[in-house]
Design a protein around this nucleic acid. Structure first.
Length: 483
RNA sequence: GGCACCGUCGCCAAGUGGUAAGGCAAAGGUCUGCAAAACCUUUAUUCCCCGGUUCGAAUCCGGGCGGUGCCUCCA
């Protein structure tokens, strides 16, 4: 079954057909590394992670490139505030960023290029634009792209050049022919990192890096380009202008990326989470309190194009949901230990889930499909009476298929017992629980129950419940969970 | 001001022409010494409002109302 993706350029959901059969060239715009990544970044790269995982599950050989922007105004400013070398500061945050992505369970990109390693390619690309007449160097050390030379400028963002006039700005010292023109190369100012170029010492503008690194690692035309909705204009609009002008026919916007994907924002109180508003949580802050896999469940429960409102309540809910999923797997694993999974018949959990992902990566739908399968598995597992070999084979199939689906979402890959213990530790820590005390009380209660002193037993249960601890009496003794 | 997007049960959320997935919460039940968990049942004749197109619309069109984003750095 073919994959369909809503393409920003055409505004239509279209069948995804890569340039070369079986291969996908994918570029995701990476972060500017001047600070720790926040939950908005978490969403972005979890979304791309699922896209990559699903394309690979469907048999595509995917080359995933995601850059680090390590040359930028904000990095320079931050570095000078701290008296640190800008490239070193960027390198520090790039490493921290990798740690955050690993913690979230995101696959590493195949290539993670940095701007500072691609200055020659950037210079070459700018030279091409100058030679083709799409750019000009006014002699002040800057080079600008002449927006009006590109006929389809603004097609991606559905804006025409005249609409943009009012918002365009010219900074002091710039020498643009038109306020809409944007810098490809910026002449060096004192104290800034700078590289030699035909136009003097300087550094690349914001947009040219992605055009250059895309070409370097994936070629002039790529299959899939992704980013947040805030990148549609101006960043991706300008990338198209540059790449098509330098490497394509200079006219048609589709010459750069064949499909454009843009995801919605993470919000707080229905406002975009962003550094400038100050209403953000870093990934590490949140992962100190909540489980990373729960974060994925939370993020993937909403379709990638829609906004998702961040809150501790929602995240806690996702975490409890994850507990349910792992408790089910643990129970089913126990019953189906060593059993060969059933084949044929039944409903095809894996194929139905993949079909949902084929339809513009509908992860929320997949979670819904999983919900039904988990309910059915629990019902079978808890049914009275001895399990028949057929029952066990069915449970084994469920456990296998649930994990296969989970793999595409980057969830359910841990051992259930270990995951549950870690989830409980999290919840206990959030509540400030003394786990030794809980263990002591459980032991006391066991004695009371042995003596049939149910009043005492119930008192202990009530006491612990006050602390947020729920006790569960089972055949193997009493276990507990938080909330 | 310009250009887009969004408005579905108390809350979260899928569904883009064929008669409203799923999760949380709530109520009842099974199970249990009591519980918890799990499971079963119940919970939107209705999708912000008003018109229109259609045999048929939450889904398409027009107009309102409300919210958000981009137009400056941003995932």
């Amino acid at each position: 079954m073919p994959i369909h993706i809503l393409d920003t350029l055409t505004g239509k959901k279209r069948e995804f057909v890569p340039l070369e059969p079986g291969k996908v060239r994918f570029y995701a715009c990476g972060p500017t590394v001047y600070d720790h990544a926040h939950v908005g970044h978490a969403r972005s790269y979890v979304v791309w992670d699922v896209v990559i995982r699903h394309l690979r599950a469907r048999g595509y050989e995917v080359k995933y490139v995601r850059n680090f922007t390590d040359v930028d105004d904000k990095i320079i400013r931050r570095a000078s505030e701290r008296g640190e070398d800008p490239i070193a500061l960027a390198d520090r945050f790039a490493r921290a960023y990798d740690e955050d992505m690993d913690a979230l369970g995101n696959l590493r990109p195949d290539v993670a290029p940095r701007v500072s390693d691609h200055i020659p390619q950037i210079v070459t690309l700018i030279e091409k634009l100058l030679a083709k007449g799409f750019a000009y160097a006014p002699g002040n050390g800057d080079v600008y792209y002449e927006v009006r030379k590109f006929p389809e400028y603004g097609r991606l963002s559905k804006r025409n050049v005249d609409d943009l006039m009012s918002g365009a700005r010219v900074e002091p010292g710039e020498a643009k022919r038109d306020p809409l023109d944007f810098a490809l190369w910026k002449g060096a100012k004192p104290g800034e990192p700078a590289w030699d170029s035909p136009w003097g010492k300087g550094r690349p503008g914001w947009h040219i890096e992605c055009s250059a690194m895309t070409e370097e690692h994936l070629g002039a035309t790529i299959d899939l380009h992704g980013g947040g909705k805030d990148l549609v204009f101006p960043h991706h609009t300008n990338e198209i202008a540059q790449s098509v002008a330098a490497l394509g026919d200079g006219v048609h916007a589709e010459g750069f990326a064949r499909t454009w994907m843009h995801h919605g924002f993470v919000e707080i109180d229905s406002e975009k989470m962003s550094k400038s508003l100050g209403n953000f949580f870093t990934i590490r802050e949140v992962l100190a309190r909540f489980d990373a896999e729960a974060m994925r469940v939370f993020l993937l429960n909403t379709h990638y194009r829609n906004p998702v409102n961040y809150s501790d309540v929602e995240l806690g809910q996702a975490e409890r949901r994850l507990v349910y999923l792992y408790e089910t797997l643990e129970k089913v694993d126990r019953l189906a230990q060593g059993v060969t999974a059933a084949e044929g018949g039944g409903d095809d959990l894996v194929e139905r889930s993949r079909a949902a992902l084929d339809d513009d990566f509908n992860t929320a739908m997949v979670l819904g499909i999983l919900a039904d399968a988990f309910t059915a598995a629990n019902a079978l597992a808890d049914r009275k009476g001895k399990k028949t070999p057929e029952d066990k084979a069915e449970l084994a199939r469920f456990a296998r298929d649930a994990r296969l689906v989970g793999r595409e979402l980057g969830i359910l890959q841990r051992g259930p017992a270990q995951a549950l213990l870690s989830l409980r530790d999290r919840a206990a820590a959030r509540r400030g629980l003394d786990q030794a005390l809980v263990a002591r009380r459980i032991a006391e209660r066991a004695e009371a129950r042995l003596a049939k002193d149910f009043a005492r037993s119930d008192a202990i249960r009530a006491e612990l419940l006050e602390l947020g601890v729920a006790l569960m009496d089972g055949p193997q003794g009493t276990s507990w969970k938080v909330e």
